[in-house]
Amino acid sequence: MTAFSTEKFQQMIEPGNGDIIDHVIRAVGLTKVYRMGSEETHALRGASMEAKRGEYLSIMGPSGSGKSTLFNMIGALQKPTTGRVYIDRVDIAQLDTEELAWLRCRKIGYIFQTFNLIQVMTCLENVMLPMAYAGVDEEQARENAIEKLQLVGLGHRLLHKPAELSGGQQQRVAIARAMANNPAIILADEPTANLDQKTGEEMITLLDDLKKKFGVTIISATHDLKMLQRSDRILWIDDGRIVRTARPDELDFSSTEFH
């Protein structure tokens, strides 16, 4: 249908040199103001970040600092008040709704704190859904979904409804669903916040495996110390600004800062 004409596509490519070519996501000067009546909340005040292909990036920050808002912006789930987001060098502000849907369907997999599984559907149906949206035929989708569920260790729970599963199992289904169309990017908003310590750790291991196995880029907002140790890079966000960037080996996890 609306395949991009070369000309339109060229205009959308971010200007720049070869340095940025390996940034699968780049956000520049994001601000977000929520208006509720006369009240204004500045959730983001000029946040910029980028993620390299295959990187495991953690976004750390206190509650209300703007992590979810940033997650929504770079995941094309919400529009920034100002600033730009480039995914694979395409400025997503210029995409129409169909193209955005394509992006959400094939390029990005989302994982939420509250899992957001469709309660009335079985695990298998949940994982098949993004493939149905991508136009994969049912048989093929079923096969792929079973494979993805086996990958997250739920090959024996295909026909269960989310309510019949533990929190950790539900999040595994969500991860399988995020991987359904083999996206280049996985975005996770505090994926372990609703899980106990041990289950959270399993989830982190699983994401790490996916990163190594498929080379997906993982960006995760988190409070979780374990998550920080596994990541390639950590961004700190506070009051809508990125205040610090570090690699885990530069940090001293025994310091009081992390307790």
């Binding site: 395949a3 490519i13 070519i21 369907c105 149905a132």
Partner: peptide, 15 residues
Amino acid sequence: MAKKIESVQLPFSVA
């Protein structure tokens, strides 16, 4: 390297 984006046109039967 940037891939072409084609929006999905789902057939009626899928809906």
